[in-house]
Amino acid sequence: MAAPTPIDPRGPRFNQGVLATALLAGFLADWRPVVPAFALVLLAGAAFGPKYGPFLALYARVIRPRLAPPRELEDPRPPRFSSAMGVAFLGAGTLAFAVGAPGLGWALALMVAALAALSATTGICVGCEIYLALARRRPVTS
């Protein structure tokens, strides 16, 4: 199977920066709708590709044209896997809010916020590392 088209790694980092900021601000204000809202934002990008993620699209259309070309490109699959993990955590957090466990809901959301902030500020993408670790273990078919 051919590798997908490489992407500008600054796009996912911008997305993660927005995600971390929104979740932390939502936690500060105890505004719970931010959790399902960003679960949907991540889901759109992870399930359908970067152009369907609102902030990925914002980066691609508005911000990237104003920046210098990226020094390197990256495979889109690790950040998409990372986003899928974020969807799972935020989805579980949403469920926790729905069943009356706001502490658990915020704990899950803050884990996502912390990992997103780490990725946005340092480039260390834990979800991507998990994807790569899994990729190393599975049989190669191509």
Partner: peptide, 25 residues
């Protein structure tokens, strides 16, 4: 409550900065 949440957010940001620094070194 807002103060407690603010402390939590600051703790997360501090932990993120520390983790990034340790990882890079």
């Amino acid at each position: 409550m807002f103060l407690v949440r603010g402390v939590v957010v600051l703790a997360i940001l501090f932990a993120v900065a520390l983790a990034g620094r340790l990882y890079r070194s």
